[in-house]
Simulated assay, not measured.
Amino acid sequence: MSNPGVQDSAVILIGFQNDYFSSDGILRGVIEESAVANNVLNHTLKFIKTVIDSGLPIVHTPIRFTTEYRELDNPVGILAAIKESKAFQAGMPGAETINEIKAFGDRIVEIPGKRGLNAFSNTELDLFLRNREVRNIILAGAVTSVCIDSTGRAAFEKGYDVFVLEDCTCGRTNFEQKFYCDEVFPIYAQVISSGVLSEQLLSSAA
C-alpha cells in the first residue's frame, strides 16, 4: 500500500451528527468514553482544516430514517438501539450534521441515503469516488466497530486502499477502539494518525 495522494484519495466522514456528538445527543453515551478520551472531534476538525485547501474530496455520509423506521426490518444490535431510542430521525435535530462540520459549507459534500452500517449501501458514494478516480479511502467518525468497520471492509472489497484515522474514530469503549485499531483494521487497512497522514497528503500536492 503506497502513500495516499491528494489526487487519488478522499475522506469519508461517518456519523458526525447531533445524536452522537452533541452533548444532549440521544446516543451520545454510546461513544462518549472513547470520543472524549481520544478527543476525536477536535482531531477531525484539525485534520480537515489542514487539508481543506488541497482540493482533497471530503464526504459526509449521514444516517437517517423515517419516523416509522420502515427501512429497518427486524434490526439487531446498534440498529435496534437506534430504533428503540428514536435516534437519527429525518427532519429532527438529532439527525442533522453537527455545526462544526456544517461550518465548512459545500467544501464537504453530503451524500445521503445511508440506512445501515455500510456507507456504500443505498448511496451514490461509490459513483462519486469512481468519477473522481479515487483509489484511497480515508475513514473518520463513529462507531469504530460498526459503521467504520463495515464501510472499510466494503471499500476494500470494491478495490480501494483503506486508511483509518486512529485519532479521528471512536468506539463504544476505549478497549474496543484499541482492539480494532490494533487487531482488526490492519487485516485490510492501514491505521494511521491524522497528523502523519495530513503530512503525506500535503507533500504529494507540493
Rank of each mutant, 00 (worst) to 15 (best):
E71F: 15
L72F: 12
N74K: 15
V76P: 00
V76W: 10
G77T: 10
G77V: 07
L79Q: 09
I82W: 00
I82R: 04
I82S: 12
K83A: 13
K83G: 10
K83V: 04
Q89D: 10
G91F: 06
M92L: 14
M92E: 15
M92G: 10
A95D: 14
A95V: 12
E96V: 07
T97M: 11
T97D: 14
I98H: 06
N99S: 11
N99A: 12
A103L: 11
F104G: 13
D106L: 09
V109L: 06
G113T: 00
R115G: 13
S121Y: 07
T123C: 03
T123V: 05
E124Q: 07
E124S: 04
D126A: 02
L127N: 06
L127V: 07
L129F: 02
L129N: 02
R132T: 01
R132G: 04
V134I: 14
I138C: 06
L139E: 00
V143T: 11
T144R: 00
S145W: 01
S145K: 07
V146D: 15
V146S: 13
C147I: 01
I148Y: 09
D149R: 05
D149P: 01
A155Y: 01
G159F: 06
D161C: 05
D161S: 11
V162K: 08
V162W: 04
E166Q: 13
E166Y: 08
D167A: 08
C170S: 15
R172I: 01
N174M: 07
Q177K: 09
C181M: 12
D182T: 07
E183W: 05
